[in-house]
């Protein structure tokens, strides 16, 4: 199968500091790829290169090549705004806008020129259903999103991301701020979503990576130490450092 995203000889710099070194990776369509590794290993930075969110940080630089469907996403002709429409993102902490549930979901659509009420209504219902939030909030979709619980807010943020009909969804530790039950619901949700989306998830929890991902990449000090099928990584890692990390013998 042809990879959805290809990363070739990629380096990333904060000023003079090389934060990511020689990354080469293939990410496949309609699979969940998990990035694991200790704090500060570069996995979040790497995730953010895939939708060019690092562009907002001054004095950063990318070398090498990242392609989405064989198109170089760092080429001059690519508008990062359009790229982010195709590559959605969910953040570590739920960050709904201080608006209604409805307005949260349609925000991206409205800003991209979709104003037909019928379409928007449909999208709100569909996305709420696909994140299994519809039954819980159907009576208050015109109430503030801030009244929802943390887990509900995070599912709303996922709904907001998929309302844009992205091809890829990036998730930066989406359950680290949630309780175990909310976490479980989101994990179930991700397994459903991978039918339609390519999902890349950064996680601190090795159990989570093992439970939901198809592929796992282990990051250490800005390098990818090992990348492959999740089953293999967890049962039979090639690298000693990977083994140390997943068995918890790591600082």
């Amino acid at each position: 199968m042809e990879p959805k995203i290809k990363i070739r000889d990629m380096n990333f710099y904060y000023g003079d500091n090389k934060a990511l070194k020689d990354i080469n990776m293939n990410i496949y369509e309609k699979k969940i790829t998990a990035f694991i590794g200790p704090s500060g290993c570069g996995k979040s930075t790497f995730l953010r290169t895939l939708n060019r969110m690092n562009d907002f940080i001054e004095d950063t630089r990318v070398e090498g090549k990242i392609t989405l469907d064989d198109i170089d996403i760092y080429s001059k002709d690519i508008d990062p705004v359009e790229l982010r429409r195709k590559v959605g993102m969910v953040f570590q902490r739920p960050n709904p806008f201080p608006k209604t549930i409805y307005e949260n979901i349609v925000y991206g659509l409205r800003k991209n020129g979709v104003n037909d009420k019928q379409i928007l209504d449909e999208v709100v219902e569909d996305t709420l259903k696909s994140v299994a939030l519809y039954d819980e909030v159907k009576d208050k979709i015109h109430k503030s999103a801030l009244e929802l619980s943390g887990g509900q807010q995070q599912r709303l943020c996922i709904a907001r991301a998929i309302a844009m009909q992205p091809e890829v969804i990036l998730m930066d530790e989406p359950t680290s701020a949630l309780d175990p039950i909310s976490t479980m619901k989101i994990e179930e949700l991700l397994l459903d979503l991978k039918e339609n989306y390519t999902i890349i998830i950064v996680t601190h929890s090795m159990q989570q990576a093992a439970r939901i991902s198809d592929e796992t990449a282990f990051f250490l000090n800005g390098e990818v130490i090992e990348h492959g099928e999740t089953k293999v990584i967890f049962s039979n890692p090639r690298d000693k450092r990977t083994e140390d990390y997943i068995t918890g013998r790591f600082g």
């Binding site: 969110m53 982010r84 800003k111 991209n112 907001r160 991301a161 844009m164």
Partner: peptide, 27 residues
């Protein structure tokens, strides 16, 4: 304005000005 809100807006494929009018100014 929390940077998390700005990032959420940008990540939905909005331009800077759209983020200013959509999230930053209302907040």
């Amino acid at each position: 304005v929390p940077s998390a809100l700005k990032q959420a807006s940008f990540a939905l494929g909005t331009t800077k000005w759209q983020t200013v009018t959509g999230v930053i100014l209302p907040y």
